[in-house]
Each structure stands twice: as C-alpha cells, then as structure tokens.
Nucleic acid binder design. Structure first.
Lengths: 204, 204
DNA sequence: GGCTCCCTACCGACCGGAAGGTCGAGTCCG
DNA sequence: CGGACTCGACCTTCCGGTCGGTAGGGAGCC
C-alpha cells in the first residue's frame, strides 16, 4: 500500500501510546471542521486512506484522539512560552513575547487550537484533570509576568489574574478570526495587541 | 395537566415562530452543558416535563432551537449595546460602556452566551448568514467607537478593526471563566478591562 | 345546564439511519 | 512462522423525527 510511516509505530500499547502523526493530523482537521461530536471516525479513516476498523488498530477510542490533540497543543504552547518567561527581558517585553508566541501558535496550528479551545469540555474523566492542570499552569505563567511588572512598579496596580485574563483573551480569541493569509501577520497583530495592553488606547 | 402556560401559544406556524420560553431555557442549559451535537431532544423534553414527541409539537427541528438561542442572544446584545453607542459620552466612556454591557451580559446569560460563542458553526444554511450579518454589525459598532476615538485624536492611531478585536476578545472570553458568584462583579471586571484597554498596563 | 365540535397539547410505539466499536479472516513482509 | 496491518460484515445503542391516537378544555348551540 501507499503507506508513509517507516517507523513500526507501537500500536495502542497504552492510553498514552504514540499515535501516527498523519492520523492525529486528520483528526485535528475533522474535529476542527465539524466539531468533536459531529465528526465521525470513518471520515478520519478515509482521510488517512483506510477503513474504520483499520483505524481502530492505531487508536483505542475516539476520545484518545481528542486527548492527544489537546495534550500536544498545550504542551507545545507551554514549551514555547517558557522561553519567554525565562528570558531576562523587562515585564513589558515578556508580555509582548507571550502575545507573539501565542498569536504565532494560533497561526501555525489553526485547527489544533480550534479543537483545543472549542472542544474543551468534551474530554472526560481522569485525563480532563491533567489538561486543566496544564492550562492553569500556562495561565499562571502569564500571571506571574504581570505580577513581576506590578511588583517593580513597571505596571499599574491591577490584579495580575485579571490582567492575565485580558492578555490571554486577546490571543485566544484570535482563533475565531485570524487568517494566516490575511492582511496582517501574526507578529503584527501580536504587536498591536501588546501596544494596546501595555500603553492603552488613549493618547498621552 | 399541570400546565403553566395560559396563553395559547401559536404552535410551530413557521420557521420563525415563537417557542415557549421554558423550552428555550431548557435547550440553552442542555446545549451549554453537553454541546449542541451531544445534546438530545429527549433530555430537553424531560426538563420541561414532557416526552420527545410532545416537544416536537412546539419545535420543528432541533436546529430551530439552536437558531432561536443564537438569535435571542445577538439581538439582545445589540440592543443593549446600542444605547451605549447612541449616547453622547466620550469614546473612552463608550468603550467602558461596551465592556460593561458585554460583561454584564455574560454574567446574566452564561449558558446562552456559551452556546452563542461555542456553537457558532453548528447553525447551517440560510439562517447562518443572518447570524453572521448581525455578529458583524455588533463588531462594527465597537469598531466605529474606536474609529471615533482615533479620529478625534483621543485614541492612539491603531487600526480600529484590530482594537475592536482586542476589546471584544476580553469580553467574549469571559464566558470561559467568569463566575457570577465569584470575588469580582461583572462591572468590576469590565472596569478593570476598560482600564487596561484605555490606559494600558505600563505606568506613566 | 348539557351537548357536540374542535383545537391544542400530549404520548407510546415506531422508523431509518448513523455512529462507535468488535470480530475474524485475510495479506504482506521480515 | 509471526506479528503488524487492513478490511467486510456485524453488533449495539442512540438519536432525530413521524404517526396515529387520546385527553381536555373552551366555544357555540339548544
């Protein structure tokens, strides 16, 4: 057949087993387009060029695919944001950096981010907790940057948690409207958002 | 029977017929909790105290319920925001007003807003366009306020469309985290967001 | 008051379809 | 030979939606 995976990927050996990347990619596309519950395993199978029963040779349950997407997204996002956090820039520059990373992430992984943000409640049970922890951790990273700014009086005295919500909202909401081929690049948008978040709209 | 609707509500006379409010309320709750596709008509029927076939006496299709919720939300939101837009306040005050209206809206109609923002793509066909037009109109309202501010040099020179995205993002994203019984009221959150959007995080 | 008529609301039973998931048999390749 | 991989047929479950029939109350009439 016209298979493309050379590595003999260990098949469904556990709940956390590696799944073939093209399958994850197909699932990401279908989940993002139709929504998790409306998406069918048959359609995912068809995209990767097999039938549904074959797909179940690589995946245990439909939910495993959803979880894998979620995990991959939040792990990568945390990883990329970490480099910003651990830099020696000023709090302002870190906020700008967070926004740049986040917007660039949205631009590069549109479908994945859509699934990650829109299908938040579809993951159930044990693994849901794991994701909540990581999401909270990510938010804490941003919160800490802002606390750093207010601590050094570089930032106005607003509750860091609320300010973090505001900054994250700008980036997260991007998945609903940002088009990678549009008039503005992700970096330009991120910088515009950073300007608003840091200096505000009013003239000085 | 123990009915409570005294008015002989005209039953399913057309696609735009009025549906009993308790049915809309039940659908809103179920759609918000389970997601549109995962929600079942039986569960909605059960909440309002009837069986599925009886529910279909009041509603033609499942999608009609979804559409009704969407329409109700966007219509009310536009209506409330209109009063802000048509006031004679300064652009800054109007931005604050928009955020107050939006956050208060989120607080009062949590489930409805959740459906409205999360189940955006589940509406199909003709009526979807109608909703897109209204959503764009709402966004234009905010965009215009900001253009007004940049025009009078009260606001910094940023593209109004981008600034509108930023402002709306803060409010829209609220549905994912704001708890009406939490430490901050909707108005307090809105004012904090307005402060960030207008003056920025950096000290002057 | 009784009586019929009719319309609204309600429901048990049912249908067609589609979905997630399984099974057993086959193929290919090291 | 054996394990990875594929698939046709199949099972179960559930869902959106329909159908035929029933209860009940108001309107009109005698």
């Amino acid at each position: 057949m016209s298979r493309t995976a050379p590595t003999p990927t260990a098949p469904r050996s556990g709940p956390d087993a590696k799944v073939r990347p093209d399958i994850i990619a197909a699932a990401t596309r279908v989940f993002s387009e139709r929504g998790y519950h409306a998406a069918s395993m048959s359609e995912i199978a068809e995209i990767v060029g097999m039938r549904k029963p074959s797909l179940y040779h690589h995946v245990r349950k439909k939910e495993d695919l959803l979880f894998a997407i979620h995990e991959q997204m939040i792990d990568e996002l945390i990883d990329e944001t970490m480099t910003v956090l651990s830099s020696s820039e000023s709090p302002s520059e870190k906020v700008r950096g967070v926004l740049r990373v986040a917007m660039s992430f949205v631009a590069r992984h549109r479908d994945g981010v859509t699934v990650f943000l829109q299908e938040r409640s579809a993951v159930s049970g044990e693994r849901w907790n794991e994701l909540v922890v990581k999401r909270d951790f990510y938010e804490q990273m941003v919160s800490r940057i802002i606390a750093e700014g207010t601590g050094s009086h570089a930032f106005v005295d607003v509750p860091p948690a609320i300010a973090a919500k505001a900054v994250l909202a700008m980036a997260n909401w991007g998945y609903t409207w940002f088009q990678p081929g549009g008039p503005l690049t992700a970096e330009q948008v991120a910088d515009a958002f950073a300007a608003i978040a840091l200096q505000g709209l009013e003239t000085r």
